[in-house]
Amino acid sequence: MASLAPANPSHAAFDLFVQAKTCVEVRQHFTTLCRQLHIDPKDFRNFYTKLKEKLNYWKAKTLWTKLDKRAAQAVYQQGKACTKNKCLVLGAGPCGLRTAIELALLGAQVVVLEKREEFTRNNVLHLWPFTIYDLRELGAKMFYGKFCSGSLDHISE
C-alpha cells in the first residue's frame, strides 16, 4: 500500500507545522522547515518571498494564493506602508494572529508573544460573518480544519 506522507522532507515538515498543537511543536517544525529550505527566519523582509519560492508544495500554494491576493490590495502599498515599524503582538489567538498578519502585510517587523503552551480553547469564540470571511481569506481553514464547520459560526476545540 502506498504511503500518504509526502516524499519531500520539506513538504512533510510543512504538514507537521500546520498540524502542530503546542507552541513547542510549532517552533520545532518551523525551525526544521527553515533549515531544510535553507531560509533564515530572521530575514523578515525576504522571508515570505524565499519561502514561497522554495516550498513548491500544493498545500502551501493554496496559502500563498490567499496571502498574495490580500497583499496585492493598494492599502498595503506593496508591503512598504510600515517598513520602519517594529510591532509586538500579545496573544496568538485569532485576533492576535490576525493583527500580526495585517502588520506583516503592511511591512512591519512583527513579534508575537503567547503565554499558553497549547493552542486549545475551553470556551467557544463566536465570530461575526465579516470576521469568518476575513479569516477564511487568510487561510484559517488550512491550519484549523474544523474552522466554522457545522451550523455555528465559531471556533472551538
Results as ranks from 00 to 15, higher is better:
residue 44 F to V: 15
residue 81 A to G: 04
residue 19 Q to N: 14
residue 50 K to H: 09
residue 77 Q to S: 12
residue 112 V to E: 00
residue 149 S to K: 14
residue 49 T to E: 13
residue 99 T to A: 07
residue 79 G to K: 09
residue 134 D to F: 11
residue 31 T to N: 07
residue 140 A to R: 05
residue 51 L to I: 00
residue 103 L to K: 10
residue 37 L to K: 02
residue 149 S to T: 13
residue 19 Q to P: 01
residue 27 R to A: 15
residue 8 N to S: 15
residue 84 K to M: 09
residue 95 C to A: 15
residue 73 Q to L: 14
residue 94 P to H: 11
residue 41 P to V: 11
residue 55 L to N: 01
residue 151 S to H: 06
residue 139 G to K: 03
residue 15 D to L: 11
residue 39 I to T: 06
residue 62 T to A: 11
residue 6 P to T: 15
residue 17 F to R: 02
residue 28 Q to D: 11
residue 23 C to A: 15
residue 107 G to D: 02
residue 58 W to R: 08
residue 136 R to V: 03
residue 47 F to Q: 01
residue 29 H to T: 10
residue 147 F to C: 03
residue 127 L to F: 07
residue 20 A to D: 07
residue 132 I to Q: 00
residue 56 N to M: 00
residue 9 P to A: 03
residue 21 K to S: 12
residue 78 Q to S: 08
residue 153 D to G: 02
residue 14 F to W: 06
residue 90 L to R: 05
residue 95 C to D: 10
residue 62 T to W: 01
residue 113 L to S: 14
residue 56 N to P: 00
residue 75 V to H: 06
residue 13 A to C: 01
residue 32 T to I: 11
residue 137 E to A: 12
residue 84 K to F: 03
residue 47 F to T: 04
residue 93 G to M: 05
residue 105 L to G: 01
residue 63 L to F: 05
residue 102 E to P: 08
residue 45 R to K: 11
residue 141 K to D: 10
residue 79 G to N: 08
residue 109 Q to H: 13
residue 10 S to W: 06
residue 123 N to V: 12
residue 31 T to H: 00
residue 89 V to H: 01
residue 65 T to D: 14
residue 8 N to C: 14
residue 107 G to S: 07
residue 61 K to N: 13
residue 133 Y to S: 14
residue 35 R to S: 09
residue 14 F to T: 03
residue 139 G to L: 02
residue 113 L to F: 15
residue 127 L to E: 02
residue 66 K to P: 10
residue 142 M to V: 08
residue 134 D to C: 07
residue 126 H to T: 12
